[in-house]
């Protein structure tokens, strides 16, 4: 369970997040919604350790933790970026196994075996040796999901998972996210798409823009 206590984030003099209190329960899907500019992405970036928060605390299962500094511990947060950010110079298999090999010190065989299992689940079998430019948007997203899952995160975050895809792929993303939930994965989804959020969410957190 991830708890955010009084999280605030300020850029220069602009307060983006103002005392956010939020709980993500294990195995649930939390959707963070709100209009653009409200700070959804900043909130997600703070949770995933890409921004240092100005004040407030993160608690993981009751223990304090700082996602920004969290490097040596077990993987906590996995991230699927809006534009996926696959590594163009690496094949699908290398994209997925790079971090498990370098960071988790897995052997090639181990890392590839696990990657193949996860790829099969997300309908990516046979794409191992392709490069990212050879994939469709939906396939890139699934590779990004497998790449994040390969680090065994406790929580998987998505930034606007439907925005870079054709509208008819929304259904597919929904079923992937719900499928991962059935396997017990805790997920946080940032989206501006309310219908999408209502379809998948156990809990919805509304971020509203701050009036200055």
């Amino acid at each position: 369970m991830l708890t955010l206590k009084d999280i605030s984030k300020q850029f220069d003099n602009r307060l983006i997040l103002d005392n956010i209190n939020l709980t993500v329960k294990d195995g649930e899907i939390l959707c963070i919604v709100g209009p653009s500019g409200a700070g959804k992405t900043t909130l997600l970036r703070s949770i995933s350790g890409l921004e240092r928060v100005t004040s407030g605390k993160f608690l993981l299962d009751g223990q304090a933790f700082d996602p920004y500094e969290n490097r040596e511990n077990d993987s906590v947060i996995g991230v699927v970026f809006q534009d996926f950010q696959l590594f163009p110079n690496l094949t699908v298999m290398e994209n997925i196994t790079l971090a498990p090999r370098l960071v988790l010190k897995k052997t090639n065989e181990e890392a590839e075996q696990e990657a193949r299992e996860k790829m099969a689940q997300l309908n990516l079998a046979g794409k191992e040796s392709l490069f990212p430019y050879q994939l469709s948007g939906g396939q890139k997203q699934r590779v990004a999901i497998v790449r994040a899952l390969a680090m065994n995160p406790k929580i998987l975050c998505y930034d606007e998972p439907t925005s870079a895809l054709d509208p008819d792929l929304r259904q597919e993303v929904e079923s992937i996210i719900v499928g991962l939930k059935q396997q017990g994965m805790t997920q946080i989804v940032v989206t501006h798409d309310m219908t999408f959020a209502e379809n998948i969410a156990d809990d919805i957190f509304q971020v509203s823009p701050r009036n200055e």
């Binding site: 950010q85 790079l98 971090a99 790449r147």
Partner: peptide, 21 residues
Amino acid sequence: KGQYESAKVLRLTYWQTLRKI
């Protein structure tokens, strides 16, 4: 910048990010 961030959330070190990506 996204390439660096994506490497960071995968917990690659700065040198690993430089060398491999």
